[in-house]
Design a protein around this nucleic acid. Structure first.
Lengths: 202, 202
DNA sequence: GTCTATACTGTGATAGAC
DNA sequence: GTCTATCACAGTATAGAC
């Protein structure tokens, strides 16, 4: 919704926040590397060099995009350390963290995941890419009547290895450990029969 | 192991496969965008332009890297379609797919996940990045005696949203659905008490 | 099959007028 | 606060000698 294909809108009076908003959207859609400062400026309807009045560098833009989320992590850590060590703390903490995730956080995370769209576009490209081929697997368990979040659940299940890899976050991890963890994830996700997913009002 | 910091080895007689091997390693380590053709050539000890004798373009290199995985997906689909629709087919299929994942596949997937190392390096960078801050959360549930795959499990749990986002793979998905699916994942992963993870010999 | 040399393009960033 | 103009450089890719 809103300005779907908005480019070159007005000129003048850009604020830091407007730049941040556009940059977030473009970084999310195309990835950081694939988004040039010219792209950002063009979308705002201003000149590329004008960005440098508001930000010292392209890196500073992305850094400012990440800042708020970081502060929330610190608050979460503070809360966590104040909790008694009960057996269900793991679940409680995980759910609390999840509930603190807003829509904007999801955008930020998409960005932080690392140029998702950008590189994936490269690998999707053809008809004969892995993701396209994998759609048949998903289709085997999901049809048009499947609730969206359930379809997503199935997708996530078959991407268990990917989920674990993402969680390693660049640290060196033995492939055997990745596979072992992924196996646990698969077992857990196919054992759970939590009805509609256990949504609770808070 | 092997040649950890190997650059500029010998000259001449490079095969397509050697280029593929080096490219895979560098793409995985640094990401596609952050790896130049010069980097690849330098690691092989040849000139940048020599790559173009073997491959038409940089994109063709990465495309050739993805091909074998794609064929396996197709085989998997064939198998899947031949299965009877039993209630536990989802688990069976997910485990089968998982078991077909080799070490090399993990490298390929790291690459396909999209410049993981590259962009994440940008977001890690400072002391005050989100991932660094989040280490405290992990440390609250994991110590040095925790088995690696269990530690990975915890990391994956707290990255449930990220896992779901990754699984959406660029398709437009409502944030509410992402959160709903992530909630299911968290519930499932914190309900399962599968002992050591249910490793079975095949 | 590899080299040297170079064209071409796109990028982040700066200087200075308005 | 935005513009024009431009720089410096890195990247992919090509031409042609050896």
């Amino acid at each position: 919704m809103s300005t779907t294909s908005g480019r070159a809108r007005r000129s003048g009076a850009q604020t830091r926040d407007e730049i941040r908003r556009v940059a977030m959207r473009l970084f999310t859609e195309r990835g950081f590397d694939a988004t040039s400062t010219r792209d950002i400026a063009a979308d705002l309807g201003i000149n590329q060099s004008s960005l440098y009045y508001h930000f010292k560098s392209k890196d500073e833009i992305v850094a400012s995009l990440m800042q708020s989320r970081r502060e929330e992590v610190e608050e979460f850590v503070t809360w966590l350390k104040a909790q008694p060590r009960t057996p269900d703390l793991l679940r409680t903490a995980a759910l609390r963290w999840l509930d603190a995730t807003t829509e904007e956080h999801i955008h930020a995370q998409r960005l932080a995941l690392g140029s998702q769209a950008a590189s994936q576009r490269r690998f999707r490209g053809g008809e004969n890419s892995v993701p396209v081929a994998f759609e048949e697997v998903i289709a085997h368990f999901v049809d048009k009547d499947t609730p969206p979040e359930e379809a997503l659940y199935v997708r996530t299940l078959f991407n268990a290895v990917g989920s674990v890899i993402m969680a390693t976050f660049g640290r060196e991890t033995a492939p055997a450990d990745i596979l072992a963890a992924a196996r646990r994830v698969v077992m857990a996700m196919t054992s759970y029969e939590g009805g509609s997913g256990g949504r609770e009002e808070s």
